[in-house]
Design a protein around this nucleic acid. Structure first.
Lengths: 202, 202
DNA sequence: ACCTGGTGTCACCAGTCGGTGATATACAGT
DNA sequence: ACTGTATATCACCGACTGGTGACACCAGGT
């Protein structure tokens, strides 16, 4: 029985976040959010207008995906291109693995378009673009393509790992498996860049 | 008002398939399936016991994922390893792209575990294992890892493309984009295999 | 003391969900 | 023609969904 609209708003948003991370996006709904937040559902309509409005508010006021700058800042900018590309791929995967919320949102985005998934997609896109641009490998369109495909592959593997659902015996949550995958990706990227260098020398 | 249990069973299964491909897996449910199949829902319980039973029956009696053998049969077994690996990745992607049902099931499997998604996963796994085994590259564990990651990446891109949802401007449904991706993957795999050959010669 | 506006609580709506019991109907064996 | 059985239809259940109107409460201003 607190009389503080801002606090109530935050309680609702926090409830939504807990609900998504604990039950997955399939469970979200006005009733479930209200229950989780310990709040009457009519307040959701009062403060956010509708379920879509709540998702929009969540997208605006919550940090949806890990900030890539925090990860990439300490990257030596004068490192060889293949090392930078490898770091982009692996750090991206590590960041996703650390955030169950982001994992759920990635999966949600594959299933449905709504204010939250759309905003999340834009946020991810911006992160990725910025990372690539800062690394100075943008001009090489094909390298960007390879990096993107690899990132997608790791994202998929991480999503599969969520429910103890490994693919081809690759359980990315197991450290030794992850290390093997990282080794393979690293050497594949290296080989790709070196083969292109060799080609341009011809 | 036909009195033919087998025909009714098939009507139900066909309705489920239409529903999944048209509305996506989020729409499936006893009522929706019965509506789509033009059948009273009590018949679903009669013939399949429950919703889970229906999914199980669907998994048993329907072709869930494209048969890889049909694709790989005409593959020259004496081709270089990197060509075989590339073919595995690209054919896998093409097969998935051609089957909206399989796409939906892949996405479903990321979200929920039920008799259908479990059976689908096993089927995919078997396909993949067989393909890799027949290609004779199984002994090279790291190559298998790379191939798997790349397949996952393309699967993810295809899922993103489903709802006009490209990632980093990579819309895999556009032929020119797909060709570029295929080119990059091909040369990355080639470079990876060649770098390993060079290494083993040392 | 009174009113006003923001806040929280409760009860309810129509619709859908998965699931079931009772009943009508068509067909096969006699 | 009659009966038995498998098949299909209908009506209903409790629980849940998204959504809304009515009301209780508590604050601050006059």
């Amino acid at each position: 029985m607190q009389r503080d609209s801002e606090k109530t708003r935050q309680k609702i948003l926090a409830g939504l976040e807990r609900l998504i991370t604990r039950e997955g996006f399939t469970g979200v709904g006005v009733n479930a959010v209200a229950r989780e937040a310990g709040v009457d559902k009519v307040l959701i309509y009062r403060y956010f207008g509708s379920m879509g409005g709540l998702l929009e508010g969540f997208a605006n006021e919550k940090k949806l995906c890990p900030r890539m700058e925090d990860i990439f800042d300490n990257l030596p900018v004068d490192a060889p291109h293949h090392e930078i590309a490898t770091r982009i791929v692996l750090d991206h995967a590590r960041a996703l693995q650390k955030s169950p919320l982001a994992q759920e949102l990635v999966c949600w985005k594959l299933t449905e378009q709504n204010p939250l998934t759309i905003a999340f997609g834009k946020s991810m896109e911006k992160n990725g673009m910025k990372a690539l641009a800062e690394m100075g490998i943008i001009p090489d369109e094909e390298a960007v393509t390879l990096v993107t495909v690899l990132i997608c592959g790791l994202q998929y593997l991480i999503l599969r790992g969520r429910n103890n659902n490994p693919m081809m015996n690759i359980d990315y949550s197991k450290p030794e498996t992850r290390e093997k995958v990282e080794r393979v990706i690293s050497s594949a990227i290296k080989a790709f860049f070196e083969s292109r260098e060799g080609e341009s020398e011809k």
